[in-house]
Write a protein that binds this DNA or RNA. Structure first.
Length: 479
RNA sequence: GCCCGGGUGGCCGAGCGGCUAGGCGGCGGGCUGCAGACCCGCUUCACAGGGGUUCAAAUCCCCUCCCGGGCUCCA
């Protein structure tokens, strides 16, 4: 079965066929490193991480580029560069600020277990490429120079609006008074003139200035991936104008359509039903979220909804993810423990193959992670059932369950660092614990439950959970 | 105003013409001295409302209501 994806360009499902068989060229818009990364970034990058990992699991080689925006991204209300704004706020040089938050971003991505892109190009290191690109657009008649500024002439690109579905007549209506030097209100800046004393500026054929935000992704994508790429992704909020403008620039420049075959966009993340924003005071950074929930919990929460739908970050949903993760891990731990005492027999339960197939089918259908997770839960229940039903387990079956649950989880980036839970105390402590457990069993036989329960409670306080089963006590370790 | 998405059982969340999604929570049962874990069953065949198409609609069409988002700040 081929993979099918929902392409924002055309708003329909399409079979996924990369330009070069077996190789996926993928670009995802990275952050503007003006401040710490937030849960919205986590949502988008985790969703794409799962997509990339699954593509790799299916045998594709994925060449992945995600940029760092460190120049040119203006805030429309004030017209101020976001980096300069942040630098002012923190009393740093602009490039000091960029360093600080770029490395913080890398750290957050690593903490979330997100695969590193093959290249993470910075906009400020590609100014010359952008200047060349803009020169090309002017030569081809798609851009014009006014007073040290260069604008893209939207009227020369009839496809403008094809991604967002916004009609041309709508685009030229305006809430904010357009720059009167533009020929058309929908025209956007490729290069902007810098005022005196402005720190982030470069020399160009049009005078000192800096690039517009939209040109960077386009230039860097083409530089590292080629004139036509397979997947271009980002948050839904980037569809207009950012991605619309990228298409216009790239296709006008190269003359090749489409710039990207598949445009994938992630849905928003809200906090307790509200949009996350600084002004609402409900802004949650990745690092703060990680203090409360481990990376796998956040990932499981995010993958519990489809990447295109909106998800809400709230306590209930997160504790649900915690509970589900706990259950998967407990099952894996138990499977692992039982292998030693199991018999050398050869049968693999049929459900395992079925679940794997269903998992892959779900993921192949526009990366339906909730459907895929349902198969992991199914396997978990089936494994527990097997553990419970049979007194003599087969090594092959236990290993097959263990391997399949881990394999499928890891194919979407879950449980990357999973290790069977072990006691974190020295070997002697294990012996002491066993003596304690023997005594407790003796107490239970003599019906001295008050004492035996007290042992259980106290062990529980230090992270050693005793569960009495018909096969004797079972020990679990918690952090 | 215009343009995109949505509204599914107590909650989260798939499905998008016929075939049990799944999970959380709750209840009952099994196992248990108890607790927990786990398994089984139940949680009235739930699909915003109203029309229509169809042998058949949560799924397609029309209208209405409600929610989220975008319309040059945003992942």
């Amino acid at each position: 079965m081929p993979i099918r994806v929902f392409n924002t360009l055309g708003r329909r499902y399409e079979p996924f066929e990369p330009i070069q068989p077996g190789l996926v060229k993928m670009y995802v818009c990275g952050p503007t490193v003006q401040d710490v990364a937030h849960l919205g970034h986590a949502r988008t990058y985790i969703a794409f991480d799962a997509i990339i990992r699954f593509l790799e699991y299916r045998g594709y080689r994925v060449f992945y580029v995600r940029n760092i925006t460190d120049v040119g991204h203006l805030r429309e209300e004030t017209g101020e560069d976001r980096i300069i704004e942040g630098a002012g706020r923190e009393k740093l040089q602009p490039m000091e600020l960029v360093d600080k938050y770029m490395f913080a971003f890398f750290k957050d991505m690593e903490a979330l277990g997100i695969r590193r892109p093959n290249i993470q190009p910075r906009a400020s290191m590609h100014i010359l490429d952008m200047i060349e690109f803009i020169k090309g657009l002017i030569e081809k008649g798609h851009a014009y120079v006014v007073d040290g500024n260069v604008y893209f002439d939207v009227s020369t690109f009839p496809d403008y609006g094809k991604l967002s579905g916004v009609k041309y007549e709508e685009l030229i209506k305006h809430r904010i008074e357009p720059d009167p030097r533009k020929r058309n209100p929908a025209d956007f800046a490729l290069w902007k003139k810098a005022e005196k004393g402005y720190l982030l500026k470069w020399n160009s054929p049009w005078g000192e200035g800096f690039p517009g935000w939209h040109i960077e992704c386009c230039v860097m994508a083409i530089k590292y991936l080629g004139e036509q790429i397979d997947i271009h992704g980002g948050g839904q909020d980037l569809i207009l104008p950012h991605h619309e403008n990228e298409i216009a620039q790239a296709e006008a420049y190269t003359g090749k359509k489409p710039f990207a075959r598949y445009w994938l966009h992630t849905g928003y993340l809200t906090i307790n039903g509200e949009k996350m924003s600084k002004s609402l005071g409900n802004f949650i950074s990745i690092r703060d979220a990680l203090k409360k929930y481990e990376a796998d919990v956040l990932r499981l929460f995010i993958l519990s909804a489809h990447y295109r739908s909106q998800i809400d970050y709230n306590e209930q949903s997160l504790s649900q993810a915690e509970e589900n993760l706990r259950r998967i891990r407990d099952t894996l731990n138990q499977l692992y423990e039982l292998v030693d005492e199991a018999e050398e027999r050869g049968e693999v339960p049929g459900e395992i193959g079925e679940a794997r197939k269903a998992f892959i089918r779900a993921m192949e259908d526009d990366f339906n992670t909730p459907g895929a997770l349902a198969e992991i839960y199914r396997l978990t229940r089936s494994a527990n059932s097997y553990i419970q039903s049979s007194s003599k387990h087969s090594k092959t079956a236990l290993k097959a369950y263990y391997g399949a649950i881990l394999e499928l989880s890891q194919s979407i980036g879950l449980l990357q660092n999973y290790k069977p839970a072990k006691m974190k105390y020295p070997a002697d402590a294990a012996k002491v614990l066993n003596i304690l457990l023997e005594i407790r069993e003796e107490l239970r036989k003599r019906r001295l439950y008050e004492l035996s329960d007290s042992i259980r409670d106290k062990l529980s306080e230090i992270g050693i959970i005793i569960e009495d089963t018909n096969k004797g006590p079972r020990v679990k370790f918690r952090k």
